[in-house]
Amino acid sequence: MTRMVNCVKLGKEAEGLKFPPYPGELGKKIYENISNEAWKMWVNQQTMLINEYRLSPVEPQARKMIEEEMKKFLFGEGAA
């Protein structure tokens, strides 16, 4: 049976992720509140950011920027 979540990004009930896609508390929050569809939207956005800004995900500064952008994208501008 498919796990359903009330997706805060899409504002509707949708199919949830199969596992937390990110480590720690943020990963748990994403798993509980973000749908599979919204996560796929984020992955596309993340790819565009990495390419546009020529980011290297192995660099701590780039990872921090990507994480902040992910919070904004998935949970809104003032997301913690």
Rank of each mutant, 00 (worst) to 15 (best):
K72I: 14
L10H: 10
M65L: 15
K28C: 00
L49E: 14
Y31W: 12
I50G: 01
E25A: 05
N6F: 05
L74M: 09
M70T: 05
A80K: 06
G11P: 12
G78R: 00
L55W: 06
E52L: 07
K40R: 15
K40H: 14
N33E: 12
P21V: 12
P57A: 09
T47E: 14
A79F: 15
E13H: 10
Y22M: 07
P57T: 05
M65R: 10
N6R: 06
N51Y: 07
G27D: 14
F73N: 10
G76N: 08
C7E: 08
M4E: 07
K12H: 01
A80S: 14
L49I: 15
A62Q: 10
E32I: 02
K71Y: 11
T47D: 14
R54S: 13
E37C: 03
S56N: 15
I30F: 09
E52W: 06
E67T: 15
E67L: 12
G78D: 15
L17I: 00
K71T: 05
E52S: 04
Q45W: 08
V8N: 09
K64E: 13
Q61V: 12
A62T: 04
T47A: 08
E32A: 05
E69A: 10
I34Q: 02
Y53A: 06
K29S: 02
E15V: 15
A38W: 11
E67Q: 13
Y22R: 06
L10I: 01
M4G: 00
M41K: 01
F19K: 14
F73K: 01
E68Q: 12
K29Y: 03
M41W: 04
R3H: 08
F73V: 03
N51A: 06
P60M: 07
G24K: 01
G11K: 05
G24T: 12
N51P: 00
P23K: 08
R3L: 07
P57L: 11
L17N: 06
N6K: 05
L26R: 01
E37F: 11
T47L: 08
S56W: 09
A62S: 13
W39Q: 02
E68W: 13
P57F: 08
L10D: 12
L17A: 08
V5R: 00
V5I: 02
P57Q: 05
W39T: 07
T2H: 04
N51R: 11
Y31H: 12
E32R: 02
G78I: 03
K72F: 10
E68T: 10
A80R: 13
A80V: 07
G16C: 00
K9C: 08
N36R: 08
Q46D: 10
V8L: 09
S56V: 07
Y31D: 12
L10F: 02
L74G: 07
